[in-house]
Amino acid sequence: MSRDIKLSLVVPVYFEEEVINQFIKEVVEELDILKINYEVIFIDDGSTDNTVNLIKDEAKENDNIKLLELSYNHGKQAAVTAGINYSKGEYLIYMDPDLQDPPKEIKNFIVEIEKGYDLVFGVRKQKKDSLKNRFFSKIFWSVLDKYTGLDLPRGLAVMRIFNRDFAERFLMYKEQNRFIEGIFMHIGMNQSVIEIEQRERFAGVSKFNFKRKMNLAFDAIFDFSELPLKLAVRFGIFLALIGTLALFVILIVKLFFVDFQPGWPSIFGFLILSLGIQLFFIGLLALYIGRIYRESKSRPLFSIKDTTNI
């Protein structure tokens, strides 16, 4: 990569005071070795620990280190969008500061994208994480694969690189409910994957717990699939057929076999079951309507409180 081409690193941070100095040290060392013009854009998503102050101290010594402070916790998807929006590089790398996807892989991403690709995903050779987190991650990706129709690479890492044209197309997607991997796949263009060696997390614990993973998975399902609505229709048809068949059987039995008097408990139980099913599917529709309402307000995706070196 020639000296006049800038590389932007987009790094969302949230309570990362234990790892941020080491991350900056390794990233700057790697980029200095590569001898390229770069910027590292940190996007703080409402941290209340010492993360912001540590980044500002580093930014005083190196004006290639930049900081966006969001006014409150918007969520990682919005934070990444803010970083891409403010980046200036011809190539952009999105990565986390936990050092699980090591900075030494930056050169491999650059080599791959210079082959003419618009987007290069990182795929982990082996996930270095606890058994519990690996189990939860497997559930997360299984849900995505089965219910969204997104053909995401297996073992997908956070770290990836894309060019300016791809970034501009990404910024055209204005939806409030953002699933970045889904948007990346929807953009399409010329994509590739490379394998990367994952490290153990340098310090601290992941903020992306199972609850957040599953919330993101359901966001992906509702944003990129009509499957819940289709299942509701199919289930409704199934219940209608079962109900029709049951009425037919009761009629035949009463007319030709047994003269019985139906009891009110069975009717009452059936009514409660029917009400529960109706409320479930009304709630399902309400989720979609709520998302439509949220999109219709067209609020800004993020709110900036302060900036450093920008």
Results as ranks from 00 to 15, higher is better:
M1S: 15
D4S: 12
S8K: 03
V11C: 11
V13M: 05
F23Q: 02
L31T: 07
I36M: 03
I41L: 14
T48D: 14
T51H: 08
V52Q: 13
D57Y: 04
E58L: 11
N64A: 06
K66Y: 11
A82D: 01
A82C: 14
K88W: 00
K88I: 01
E90A: 06
I93R: 01
P102K: 07
N108C: 05
V111S: 12
L119M: 05
V123M: 10
R124G: 11
K125A: 10
K128I: 13
F135A: 14
F140M: 11
V143L: 15
G149C: 12
L150W: 02
R154N: 14
G155D: 09
M159Y: 05
M159L: 05
R164Y: 12
R164C: 05
D165V: 06
Y173S: 10
Y173C: 00
F179Y: 15
I180Y: 01
E181S: 15
G182V: 03
E195D: 15
R201C: 06
G204A: 13
S206F: 06
S206G: 11
K211F: 04
P228T: 04
P228N: 01
K230M: 09
F235N: 02
L239F: 02
A240P: 01
A240G: 02
L247E: 00
L247S: 06
V253G: 08
F280P: 03
F280R: 01
F281P: 06
G283H: 10
R291Q: 07
Y293A: 10
S296M: 08
P300L: 13
N309I: 03
